[in-house]
């Protein structure tokens, strides 16, 4: 490729970024018109939003609204029917390997190889991600798994299993995190710990978490994106969202937004 046009393209691009006050180059997760059909059923329709460094975006919606499908497309596990997504500038389809290298992903239900010990499992992921044993030690400490590190994962309680999934996602200290229900199945104390962990990491990372717990959005999210029947119905701060209903309570807004179309 001749160097001339390439340079000028770069120049215009960075110029535009500066014009936008620097928000463009910190958007680590970007979705543009993501759509997914299962046969004739449209699970996700034209979902577009981005997550910048420093943001914790809560992805809200009733069960079956399309949260997990959207996240699976972000992680490169499902192929969108149309639209595109990128992680730290790497297109999840055309440059999938680089996108997956950058991303820390906690799949729905925190799957892990049950017969492996916590430590062996994390060492396996660490080898694939090309990070050393100190990364494993750091992830074990962050998620308070030190006490069970030699136990087979299948013998652990639901809360521990969830934390193994978290540790796996945090292993390579990714700048971009996508977590599908990170606090599901945890007791209140564990929920508190995980939320504290997410809040502590937030300034350095772009974090997208899905949840149907509204108190979680109020506790840690800087922004809430509400999805219902595959379509985004709200994208604003939790406070703005709460203000949409006279009662000022998120559950009322949530019910109004996600049940409106069914009526």
């Amino acid at each position: 490729m001749p160097p001339g046009p390439d340079n000028s393209a770069d120049a215009t691009k960075s110029g535009r970024n500066q014009g936008n006050g620097g928000t463009m180059d910190t958007a680590l997760i970007e979705m543009r018109g993501l759509t997914k059909y299962f046969g004739g059923f449209c699970a996700v329709r034209d979902v577009s939003f981005s997550v910048a460094r420093g943001e914790v975006v809560g992805f809200l919606g009733p069960n079956g609204a399309g949260k997990s499908t959207t996240m699976k497309m972000l992680a490169g596990f499902m192929t969108p029917s149309s639209g595109s997504a990128s992680i730290e500038g790497h297109d999840v389809l055309r440059d999938g390997l680089a996108a997956r290298r950058a991303l820390g992903y906690l799949p729905e239900g925190a799957p892990a190889y049950g017969e492996m010990s916590v430590e062996a499992f994390l060492e396996f992921v660490a080898r694939i991600r090309r990070v050393g044993p100190d990364a494993v030690r750091r992830a074990l400490a962050l998620t308070s798994l030190d006490s069970v590190r030699l136990q087979p994962i299948e013998t652990l309680s639901k809360g521990f299993k969830r934390r193994v999934g978290l540790a796996q996602a945090l292993l390579h200290d990714p700048a971009t995190l996508v977590m599908d229900e990170p606090t599901d199945g945890l007791d209140p104390n564990q929920k508190f710990e995980v939320r504290a962990l997410i809040r502590a990491m937030a300034p350095r990372k772009a974090i997208l978490i899905s949840t149907h717990l509204l108190e979680e959005v109020e506790a840690i999210c800087t922004r809430a994106v509400v999805i219902a029947r595959g379509v985004i119905v709200a994208d604003c701060t939790p406070a703005e969202l709460a203000a949409r209903h006279p009662s000022g309570r998120l559950d009322d807004v949530f019910r109004a937004l996600t049940e409106a179309e069914a009526a």
Partner: peptide, 14 residues
């Protein structure tokens, strides 16, 4: 069945 396929194939492996 165990869902680990999602874990394995969302790691940076071909």
């Amino acid at each position: 069945r165990g869902g680990t396929i999602e874990l394995l194939l969302t790691l940076p492996v071909r």
